[in-house]
Amino acid sequence: MFKTLLNKCFKKSIWVYHTNTGACNGCDIEVINALTPYYDAERFGIKLVGTPRHADALLVCGPVTRQVVPALKCLYDSVPDPKLIIAIGSCAIGGGIWYNTYNVIGGVDKVLPVDYFIPGCPPRPEAILYGIAVALGLVKKKVSPVILKEESPEKWMTF
């Protein structure tokens, strides 16, 4: 089981490039937090790279301001195909609390085709890991979020 898991993990190790399009740094901190030894995203082969030309996936945080649109498009073009765009945080999805301000055009999906949305303000590192694990096919997608369930007593009763 461990071997199959490893094979799945390293079939394609995703290298990510992290961009901020006008966020408050909350989501940025959580993204970096997901790479620290406690959450350790590198066990899935996820690695932060310094240039978009090495990257497979683009992590976008924050609402898209008018000034950043050409830079974001340029960034998108410089990521080699096939590429994955992951919007992190409620701002990157629909503009967040800046949904109707004059300098924000809205979410990332108005500029780029986004593959995965991870809502939250900011999303927990677990939520980011979950989103990326779903993207990699490690975990099956749940319709409902995690709910605490008691184990059924029948399990203990049967011998």
């Binding site: 409620s90 999805i93 629909g94 995965y116 991870i118 809502p119 939250g120 939520a127 979020p145 995690v146």
Partner: peptide, 28 residues
């Protein structure tokens, strides 16, 4: 997706129980 989990709805709810922040956080 556009909720920022600020808790204003829970705070200002007139019945105090109609809407509550849960401890669920995972959605992709």
């Amino acid at each position: 997706t556009s909720c920022s989990q600020c808790g204003q709805c829970e705070e200002k709810c007139i019945t105090d129980k109609g809407i509550k922040l849960s401890s669920e956080y995972v959605l992709s």
